[in-house]
Design a protein around this nucleic acid. Structure first.
Length: 942
RNA sequence: GCCGGUGUGGCGAAAUGGCAGACGCACAGGACUUAAAAUCCUGGGACCAUAAAAAGUCGUGUGGGUUCGAGUCCCACCACCGGCACCA
């Protein structure tokens, strides 16, 4: 009953509204009372007298129809506790919430029922809002946003235009507007046509006008052709570009998926089969940022495992490209291969092309044509799942042709095998079976030669399949030799030789692929792109809409299915699709990740109609605060380790390069909360029937108990099972806190009265007045022991909050309560301070008791959320007499009591006299005494 | 296979290299009650011993090591969880 009351109070006061630089703060607002009504004036913010900011962010949820599950509030509770704690410490806290509301379920529901996804989405958001608000989180709801808001996705589209209109300049190592793109010489426009040399035929005399006409015509011709080639060149450099590559097509979902969304050949969502299919798609050039995304991981405070996941995903590997020559049908082919082990070049006994390699056809000899065709057919028949099957046998076929190994001129066969991936490196490899596991397996199966070129450091080790570093052997050719060199030296030497002789070069390769950014869906942001008809006989080309055309709204549809022709649903809206000038709109939409790539920026300036985020707001909230910049704390699940978190970093870096944001990284500190399992220790799922619904827990135990339990279960990052009995435990604790303050007899009277008047909420409210404070709570001075108990608790809670150890902070408060409940007299200041400690965890109960303390003692009411966080006084914690363990030969035997400032001699003497240690000292000589001041004594006897 | 993480009572867990198991759950015994719920008090790693205790021995996945002293540091191994996976 007290929970809705305080939730309403907070809402009416707008207690948790965060103020931006320059915002006018109402004088009565608790933030103004604490910091001054002009504390966020531009002058103070610029001069840094403003309260320091703290930006604490949750990963916003997808508002599903199923509602909140107990996993959501885990992270939300943690961030809320810290937000309240930081607020009490004097920070200007930004703690927002919103909705990642584009997404497939609403669309699938629309396909089935014809209900517009927006309707479903809004209903789900309303339900999520109700659930989240009932937990008493201190969000600034004035900044709430949804990715499906027109005013939001307008700016998502705007950012896409920025990506489209930018390129990555390798010279400056950053994104730049497309206008700065330098064209190759042959594509440069002729702007001053007087520079053109007009050559008249010998003896021909033409007028100045004629000459000008000729020049102009010539220039237009020149430029017309170039305009098209320049456009193609430009389009090939954009950060958002169109590609015709094979993609992951999921027939069941009717859309393509990013590599990241495909797991074991099945869709991440729903687990439907995915096939490879060439399609025209929008891509984002995230690979241009591979190096920065990798390097800047070192500047941010994320867990090692998470950083490692991103590093693995980016997959940087240093190596070399080696060019092999192969002649076939009098056509010279140069086959570049990528290798991380150029030092093993002498051991290359064959080459392998991926089945999709462009040379497959031209390098296949007549004699092998049938065998190769059969092999390619057999691969096509395989599903992606089978192709990635780990245990499967290596397969392949000889093309019939051979290549020349540049280091020794040896002729080595060229094979085709599907263990080589078309999409990595050069799509071809040099096989060194002696020192590569896969090549070794393949060579064994097809009886290809194996030549040792690396000697393991341990001579007993078998060199066959040895893939580690060693010493090069058998590596001497006519022009170059590396025999006897360590692997690292051998690499350097061979690369130098390759480079000077044009046989290759040093390079870096990444596993990271460009981001497939288009989806064949309805419920996503439409691309602000149109397709123009090319001049007759030429293909259409794309053009961006101007910023003034934003937001580009999706059309309303009757039917949300793809067209019968397999076009995305947007193609059904003919009058939306076709523009008057004959061009047509792009019918793909953006993936769900788009909206979540920048929402944390929008929160800082959610209502800005002029820009996606204002400069002041961005530089204030994302500022460094003396450490690396960005969101101060970001909490969410591990499932976004490589998707959302990599994409968002990428967008942020582009926006940074283009000068739209002030920091190179979006999230400074990131913490993953651990999964909550069902009571049976299994993952919660409907089919197991072990799902815990927060609403039920709330009805039974209330928000405070729910919050407290979620934090008390164990460390935030750990995976841990739910246990309803545990909720009862913290519920009992809250009951003890209540009884610490409240007179039990009055409470009993209240409960009886409440039962009678249960139906009438107003009467119940009045009945609350029957509850009286416990008579033991008085305005007397605290005893030293009481202060010690309190300050030990302040110390522990404060330190634990700083380190996000919520479980032990709660246990410290339990210790305090267990002690305090035995007190006859409960000094008011001690009790008030304890409520401040409790407030971030159980805000409703704390507010209620806080208010009662204030009214009972006639104190001026003050805002609990903005009451300054208590400081502990170390002096109060000092013990005059301490207990020290006594060990004999390292084994614990007894405890002695000595004065805290006792010198070593006293400690030694007392220890030697320790009663329980005597049996172990009798008849022995003490050889050595180790004393660690205030810690322990160890007596070493012979 | 590679990378990261975690192994402590019946359970969730706690312990700057210094008394292992704080705090909580479950359990057992007791108080209050006609009774129950709620609440309060007490107990509790294992073994050995005992009428009961004291004392003692062992104990933080396994085996070694460093140290006066190791749950904590080092080496090797095992198990579980998460990620990646024919990435040359």
């Amino acid at each position: 009953m007290i929970e809705p009351k305080w939730q309403q109070t907070w809402e009416q006061q707008q207690a948790f509204r965060a103020f931006n630089p320059g915002d006018e703060i109402p004088a009565h607002h608790p933030f103004a009372v604490r910091h001054g009504a002009d504390s966020m004036s531009r002058e103070k913010v610029a001069g840094r007298q403003a309260p320091p900011k703290f930006y604490i962010l949750d990963m916003f949820p997808y508002p599903s129809g199923a509602g909140l599950h107990v996993g959501h509030p885990e992270g939300y509770t943690a961030t809320d506790i810290l937000a309240r704690y930081r607020r009490a410490c004097g920070f200007n806290v930004l703690h927002p919430m919103g909705w990642d509301s584009f997404g497939l379920p609403a669309e699938q529901y629309a396909v089935k029922t014809g209900q517009h996804p927006r309707v479903t989405t809004e209903a789900n958001i309303a339900n999520f809002t109700r659930q989240i608000k009932s937990l008493g989180f201190s969000y600034d709801w004035s900044r709430e946003l949804a990715t499906t808001d027109v005013e939001y996705f307008k700016w998502t589209q705007w950012i896409f235009l920025k990506l489209y209109n930018s390129w990555f300049n390798p010279k400056t190592n950053s994104a730049e507007p497309i206008e700065t793109l330098e064209y190759p010489k042959e594509l440069q426009l002729v702007s001053d046509w007087n520079q053109l040399v007009y050559r008249s035929a010998p003896g021909e005399i033409i007028s100045k006008e004629q000459e000008d006409d000729f020049k102009k015509e010539f220039q237009e011709d020149w430029n017309r052709d170039r305009e098209k080639r320049r456009r193609e060149y430009r389009d090939s450099k954009r950060l958002a570009y169109v590609s015709e590559a094979p993609v992951n097509w999921c027939p069941e979902l009717g859309t393509v998926l990013a590599n990241e969304e495909v797991i074991d050949g099945k869709s991440e969502v729903g687990g439907f089969p995915v096939i490879r299919k060439p399609m025209r798609q929008w891509m984002l050039r995230i690979t241009a940022y591979a190096e920065k995304l990798l390097a800047d991981l070192d500047t941010i405070d994320w867990s090692d495992s998470l950083k490692e996941m991103q590093r693995n995903w980016i997959g940087r590997s240093e190596g070399a490209v080696v060019r092999f020559k192969a002649s076939q049908n009098d056509v010279e082919h140069i086959i570049p291969v990528f290798t991380t082990r150029p030092d093993t070049l002498f051991g290359a006994t064959y080459l392998v092309l991926a089945p999709e390699h462009s040379f497959v056809k031209s390098l296949t000899t007549e004699a092998q044509r049938k065998a190769v065709a059969a092999y390619l057919d057999s691969i096509k028949a395989k599903s992606d799942l089978e192709r990635t099957e780990l245990t499967k046998e290596k397969t392949g076929v000889w093309t019939g042709s051979v290549a020349t190994n540049p280091v020794n001129g040896q002729q080595i066969p060229i094979w085709i095998a599907d263990y080589v991936l078309a999409s990595y490196g050069m799509g071809a490899i040099m096989a060194v079976p002696a020192h590569d596991t896969r090549d070794f397996e393949f060579a064994q199966k097809f009886n290809l030669p194996v030549i040792q070129v690396v000697q393991p450091h341990d001579p007993m080790k078998d060199w066959r399949g040895y893939t580690d570093d060693g010493i090069a052997i058998n590596s001497t050719g006519p022009d170059v030799f590396i025999t006897g060199l360590f692997t690292s030296e051998a690499k350097t030497k061979i690369i130098t030789w390759l480079e000077t002789n044009g046989f290759g070069y040093k390079t870096i390769n990444y596993k990271l692929r460009d981001w497939l950014f288009s989806r064949q869906r309805y419920w996503g942001e439409p691309f602000p792109i149109i397709w123009k008809k090319g001049p007759s006989g030429q293909p259409p080309y794309h053009e961006a809409l101007p910023e003034s055309a934003l937001p580009l709204l999706p059309p309303t549809l009757e039917d949300y299915k793809p067209t019968p022709g397999g076009e995305p649903p947007l193609a059904r809206a003919k009058d939306w699709l076709n523009l008057p000038d004959g061009s047509i709109r792009e019918t793909n939409t953006m993936p769900q990740w788009a909206g979540s790539c920048w929402y944390y920026l929008r929160y800082t300036d959610a209502k800005n109609a002029q820009a996606f985020v204002g400069k002041d707001a961005d530089s204030y909230w994302m500022a460094s605060n003396g450490k690396a910049a960005g969101v101060d704390l970001y909490v969410g699940g591990t499932e976004h380790a490589v998707l959302h978190l990599l994409y968002a970093r990428f967008w942020h870096k582009v926006l940074f390069d283009l000068g739209y944001v002030s920091t190179p990284e979006p999230f400074y500190k990131l913490v993953n909360q651990g999964l909550i399992l069902g009571e049976d220790g299994q993952k919660m799922s409907k089919s197991r029937g072990n799902v815990v619904n927060p609403d039920d827990v709330l009805v039974e135990y209330g928000a405070d108990a729910f919050r407290l339990y979620e934090m008390f279960m164990g460390p935030l990052q750990d995976v841990k099972p739910w246990n309803t009995k545990g909720v009862e435990g913290v519920y009992r604790f809250l009951g003890r806190v209540w009884r610490l303050f409240v007179d039990e007899k009055a409470e009993t009277a209240f409960e009886q009265a409440e039962t009678l008047a249960a139906e009438n909420a107003e009467q119940r409210q009045e009945l609350l007045d029957l509850i009286l404070l416990d008579g033991g709570v008085t305005e007397i001075d605290a005893t030293a022991a009481q202060l010690k108990t309190l300050h030990a608790c302040i110390k522990k809670v404060t330190e634990d909050l700083d380190a996000m150890r919520f479980n032990t902070a709660i246990s410290a408060m339990m210790v305090f309560v267990n002690e305090a409940i035995t007190w006859q007299n409960k000094p008011l200041p001690v009790m008030k301070t304890f409520l401040q400690l409790l407030a971030p965890f159980a805000p409703h109960l704390a507010e209620e008791l806080w208010a009662r303390l204030h009214s009972t003692f006639g104190l001026r009411s003050s805002s609990l959320p903005y009451a300054p966080w208590p400081k502990f006084d170390p002096a109060l914690l000092v013990e005059s007499e301490i207990e020290i363990p006594v060990q004999v030969n390292g084994k614990f035997r007894d405890v002695i009591k000595v004065a805290a400032d006792a010198d070593n001699a006293t400690i030694e003497a007392t220890a030697k006299a320790a009663e329980k240690a005597q049996p172990f000292l009798a008849g022995k000589t003490i050889k050595k005494v180790i004393i660690v001041p205030k810690k322990m004594v160890n007596l070493i006897v012979a």
